[in-house]
Simulated assay, not measured.
Amino acid sequence: MKKLMLIAASALFMMTGCDENKAEKTADVKTAAPVVNQTAPAAQPAAEQNVVKSVDWDKALEMNAAGAVFVDVRNPPELNEGYAPNAVNIPLPELKQRMGELAKDKDLLIYCRSGRRSDAATRILMEQGYDRVYNVLGGYLAYPKK
């Protein structure tokens, strides 16, 4: 019985010690001087450039009617499912070699089957200086069927 009481007291002492240690760490964090990132304003626009702009199919079709170009990054056999009006097919694996076929002064509406490859393609184009690129949400699976 004495051993059990000794073990319980030791455990209680250890738990109390751990709580004090956490309290000390919390106090250190609270009293630490805040770190100011002096490059934040300059870095913010770069972060905004890495944000993929997305549109749904209704907006994409509206933009296409106003002159935006659909870019289908699926592989040729997938085109048997159908494709957006007047879409340019550049499979994702060929995009880096063929991006010169895409005008930088036009809105580009990038889509694939479900949206994963088009997101990657949009990022690749953005890294190469294309700023008028839009990922079409849901890919061709979400294309409005008439």
Score class of each variant (00 low, 15 high):
residue 31 T to G: 13
residue 94 E to S: 15
residue 31 T to K: 12
residue 117 R to M: 07
residue 83 Y to L: 11
residue 73 V to R: 00
residue 51 V to W: 12
residue 89 N to A: 00
residue 96 K to F: 13
residue 12 L to Q: 14
residue 106 K to H: 03
residue 77 P to L: 05
residue 85 P to V: 07
residue 25 K to S: 11
residue 58 D to G: 14
residue 104 K to I: 14
residue 116 R to W: 04
residue 71 V to A: 12
residue 36 V to Y: 10
residue 144 P to M: 06
residue 142 A to P: 00
residue 76 P to K: 09
residue 66 A to H: 08
residue 79 L to T: 08
residue 125 L to F: 01
residue 124 I to G: 06
residue 3 K to Q: 12
residue 53 K to W: 10
residue 7 I to G: 08
residue 22 K to C: 11
residue 16 T to A: 12
residue 91 P to A: 05
residue 47 A to P: 10
residue 122 T to P: 04
residue 5 M to H: 09
residue 91 P to E: 02
residue 117 R to G: 13
residue 108 L to R: 02
residue 113 R to F: 03
residue 69 V to K: 13
residue 136 V to L: 05
residue 57 W to E: 07
residue 62 E to M: 08
residue 47 A to E: 14
residue 67 G to P: 13
residue 126 M to I: 01
residue 68 A to Y: 04
residue 26 T to G: 07
residue 26 T to E: 15
residue 87 A to C: 13
residue 146 K to C: 01
residue 126 M to H: 00
residue 29 V to W: 12
residue 61 L to T: 11
residue 66 A to S: 13
residue 24 E to W: 11
residue 5 M to I: 09
residue 88 V to A: 02
residue 144 P to L: 02
residue 29 V to I: 14
residue 6 L to F: 11
residue 17 G to N: 11
residue 112 C to A: 07
residue 99 M to N: 04
residue 135 N to L: 05
residue 112 C to N: 05
residue 57 W to R: 11
residue 50 N to E: 14
residue 33 A to T: 15
residue 65 A to N: 09
residue 133 V to F: 01
residue 138 G to S: 01
residue 95 L to R: 03
residue 58 D to K: 15
residue 54 S to H: 04
residue 101 E to R: 03
residue 129 G to C: 04
residue 146 K to E: 12
residue 122 T to A: 09
residue 31 T to Q: 12
residue 101 E to P: 02
residue 139 G to E: 04
residue 106 K to I: 06
residue 51 V to Y: 13
residue 28 D to V: 09
residue 57 W to A: 08
residue 65 A to E: 06
residue 12 L to P: 13
residue 102 L to E: 00
residue 92 L to C: 11
residue 94 E to F: 14
residue 80 N to V: 14
residue 130 Y to D: 08
residue 144 P to K: 07
residue 10 S to C: 15
residue 3 K to Y: 11
residue 129 G to K: 04
residue 85 P to W: 03
residue 27 A to K: 12
residue 108 L to E: 06
residue 20 E to P: 00
residue 3 K to P: 01
residue 40 A to I: 08
residue 40 A to M: 13
residue 14 M to G: 10
residue 75 N to R: 06
residue 144 P to V: 03
residue 12 L to G: 15
residue 7 I to C: 05
residue 122 T to I: 05
residue 96 K to L: 15
residue 23 A to E: 15
